[in-house]
Design a protein around this nucleic acid. Structure first.
Length: 285
DNA sequence: AAGTAGTCCTGAGTGC
DNA sequence: TGCACTCAGGACTACT
């Protein structure tokens, strides 16, 4: 499932499209989580100026006029099919070819350099929305977001202020996009383990030291995941159709019933607000 | 106001 | 083999 490191990996991978002009566009008639505000065909002949990421949203700016906002949801992927990557990486290209005509391709955009951007999402939790760039930061889903976890604004002092009156458990709280963005289920489970904090603790019960440790570990774990190209559980592939490698570094996520790497106790799985949490009762207090 | 539960969706996994 | 069922999860909406 694409979380911040996966989206960042894709953003980086798409940068070769910057400066290219849009050719043909395909849009499936399948309903995604939300429909597009503007007609996607408005992108015809526009030039891709830049690609940004905010939280888990990819934002593609076209000619300074239109912004294409992409969220990959649970099972979404963006694959770039170009002549260059075909010669560079035959295996990845084969995977792309296999995906070329699947029923879950919802948006395909061809560029004048021969590249073909394909948005595929079997479960349709993701979406693609086209809006005017001048309205970008008023966009409903971008307007109320908390700080980026890798920027200096997300620090122990900031988090302490946010947590001091929160009665909800720390795990659910840290997945709230108004507190910090892009920290999904995998990375909060791993960060709490690294910080020796139980996911059941109320957010306001954390000490200053624990908050500092948690902030540090969230940053470190996200950075490491980006370096390894994200995590692949079932669906995630990068822009070349390849899987990430961070899943091999999971210490608790999905490891219920297995031994804790630190103390040999058994990793427990619980459900908090409908989401699975994995933790070591012995190490995480 | 803050916290919780329900909702959307399909494919993988499990049990019979 | 094939069917029925459960589970996964981001982020919005609706309810307590």
């Amino acid at each position: 499932m694409p979380e911040l490191p996966e989206v960042e990996t894709i953003r980086h991978g798409l940068s070769e499209l910057i400066g290219c002009k849009v050719g043909d566009i395909f849009r499936s008639d399948k309903k995604l989580r939300i429909g597009s505000t503007l007609d996607l065909s408005l992108l015809n002949h526009k030039i891709l100026n830049k690609i940004n990421r905010r939280a888990r949203y990819l934002i593609l700016d076209f000619s300074g006029e239109y912004s294409l906002i992409v969220h990959l949801g649970m099972s979404g992927s963006i694959v770039l099919n170009s002549k260059d990557s075909a010669t560079k990486n035959k295996l990845a290209q084969n995977k792309i070819e296999a995906k070329k005509h699947t029923k879950h391709d919802h948006f395909i955009c061809e560029f004048n350099n021969g590249a073909r951007l394909v948005f595929n999402d079997p479960r349709r939790f993701g979406f693609i929305d086209l809006i005017y760039t001048q309205n970008l930061w008023q966009y409903k889903m971008l307007a109320k977001l908390g700080p980026e976890p890798l920027l200096a604004q997300f620090n122990a002092q900031y988090l302490a202020k946010k947590l001091c009156h929160k009665k909800t458990n720390i795990k659910t709280t840290m997945m709230d996009n108004e507190i910090v963005v892009g920290v999904g289920n995998i990375y909060i489970n791993e960060s709490l383990f690294a910080s020796a904090i139980s996911p059941l603790r109320s957010a306001s019960s954390l000490t200053k030291d624990e908050i500092a440790k948690l902030v540090k570990n969230i940053k470190n774990i996200l950075k490491k995941a980006i370096k390894l190209g994200g995590s692949s559980i079932n669906d995630y592939v990068n822009h070349e159709g390849e899987k990430g490698n961070f899943q091999n570094n999971f210490k608790v996520y999905g490891n219920n019933g297995k031994k804790c790497l630190l103390c040999n106790d058994i990793i427990t799985k619980i459900v908090q607000n409908g989401r699975s949490s994995f933790y070591c009762k012995n190490c995480q207090k």
